[in-house]
Design a protein around this nucleic acid. Structure first.
Lengths: 153, 153
DNA sequence: CATGCTGAGTTCACTTGACGAACCGACGCG
DNA sequence: CGCGTCGGTTCGTCAAGTGAACTCAGCATG
């Protein structure tokens, strides 16, 4: 029960959602992981309103999740494209987690829309909970949350 | 480049976000994983407007992620509490993924607010990408997405 | 040189959603 | 009976998302 009394204002879940929890943000990132880089392509793939897309891309750049990189096609003026930074690439497990849940609980009779394979061996890839001792955990019941309020003082 | 032309309307990321992507939904679930079950406790921990909380809880129940369970304290009338279903528990990796990203990229000088430990051995728990051959992947670069459009017909 | 096209935005009117405070109704209690 | 609590609902306001129209730079075309 003591867990219920913890301060959760600094919770990292809330923090992350404050950064990427707005509508379209995670879908923009999904596209980025699938190789989309240009404004028009994001727009075409997502169908999001342009104003929202402008805002989300700008915000993700501000947060250091995407970076704007200039490029110039032949016979075209210079434009810029959006690429994942390290910080952005680190969001990959979040997208995989969302995808796996949808695959398990929302996929219709057509099966899952997309599979992730290990580039080296071709085997399907999954997210697993593991501890630093090397054990594989089956689920949330085997995890014990420990609060660390203001450690170090 | 062919990836760019895939149909992504059935994408599981989008599907999952349609279910739990609204504001507060994932924070409600965070609280549920930390043991919160009652309306008033959700409200107190989150500070969300009551109308929104009513809506989100109802929606999560409709989606089969939470279920309403009647209970009765001594000297109290019967009420009901909200508990995670199997489908809800399966969202745990999503929350862990969000938390780990926040821990890595948003934690200030106070360190991370909460740690997850293996209940059995006490070691810190992390999400890892693994393939069915048992390899541990370092990140998104080692994953190859394979579309499976309308398999089976 | 005027015209048009394209990518990337911006502006605008409209609808939807979030917010916070007030109100409601069932129930147990003194 | 009046009071307090829990779990909601209602309401006015304000922020956010939506889609269509407009803008603007620069290359290309006639």
């Amino acid at each position: 029960m003591s867990e219920l009394l913890l301060d959760r204002t600094r919770c990292s879940v809330a923090g992350t959602l404050a950064v990427v929890g707005e509508k379209w943000s995670l879908l923009v990132l999904r596209e980025a992981f699938l190789g989309v880089r240009r404004f028009a392509d994001f727009q075409r793939m997502l169908g999001a309103p342009r104003a929202v897309l402008t805002d989300r891309l700008g915000r993700l750049v501000d947060e250091g999740i995407l970076r704007r990189v200039p490029y110039q096609d032949e016979g075209e003026r210079q434009r810029h494209e959006y690429r994942l930074t390290r910080k952005g690439v680190d969001l990959y497990p979040t997208l995989v987690a969302l995808m796996e849940w949808g695959d398990r609980h929302l996929a219709g009779e057509q099966g899952v829309p997309m599979e992730l394979r290990h580039r080296d061996c071709g085997a399907p890839v999954h997210l697993t909970l593991t501890c630093e001792e090397g054990h594989t955990l089956e689920g949330a019941r085997e995890v014990h949350p420990v609060s660390r309020p203001t450690t170090g003082d």
